[in-house]
Computed example of a mutant assay.
Amino acid sequence: MGQPLNVGVVGTGAISAQYFRTIDRLPQLRLAAVADLDPARAAEAVAPYPGTPVRSVAELMADPGVDVVLNLTVPAAHAEVALLAIAAGKDVYCEKPLAATSADAARVLRAAEEAGVRVGCAPDTVLGTGTQTARKAVDDGLIGRPVAATATMVTPGHERWHPNPDFYYVPGGGPLLDMGPYYITSLVTLLGPVATVVGAASRPRAKRTIGSGPRRGEEIPVSVDTHVTGVLVHASGALSTLVMSFDAAATRAPHIEVHGERGSLVVPNPNHFDGLVQVAGVGDEDWRDLPESAGYVDGGRGIGLADLAVTPAGEEPRAGGTLAYHVLDVMESLLASAHSGAAVPVASTCERPAPVALRTL
Rank of each mutant, 00 (worst) to 15 (best):
R110G: 00
V66I: 14
A115P: 01
R160P: 03
D63R: 13
G144N: 08
V81L: 11
W161G: 08
E95Q: 10
Y168E: 12
P123V: 10
K96D: 07
R118A: 02
W161D: 13
E113K: 06
V66T: 14
L177D: 10
P181G: 11
T101F: 04
V170S: 08
I86E: 00
P171H: 14
V108T: 07
Y93H: 12
C121G: 02
R145P: 05
T129F: 07
D91T: 00
L60K: 13
G120H: 02
D139A: 11
H158Q: 13
L176C: 09
A100T: 11
L60S: 08
G157K: 09
R107A: 05
P123F: 09
E114G: 03
H162P: 04
G173L: 09
T133M: 03
A62F: 06
V108M: 04
P163R: 10
G173P: 13
G116Q: 01
G65E: 14
G172Q: 14
V108I: 12
G130C: 08
V68H: 01
T73L: 12
V117H: 00
A112Y: 02
A148C: 03
L142A: 07
E80Q: 15
P171V: 15
T131W: 04
V117S: 00
P64Y: 10
G157P: 11
E59Q: 15
L84W: 03
E80N: 12
E114M: 03
H162L: 13
A134T: 04
G144K: 07
L60E: 10
N71C: 04
W161K: 10
T133I: 07
V126W: 10
A111N: 05
A134M: 07
D63S: 11
M153G: 05
T131K: 05
T133D: 06
A134L: 06
L72K: 10
L70C: 15
D139G: 02
L127D: 09
K136G: 00
V119K: 02
D178R: 13
G128P: 08
P175R: 11
V74P: 11
I86S: 01
D91V: 00
A112N: 01
V119M: 02
M61D: 03
D67G: 09
E114S: 07
G157E: 12
A137Y: 01
L70K: 13
E113V: 01
A88T: 02
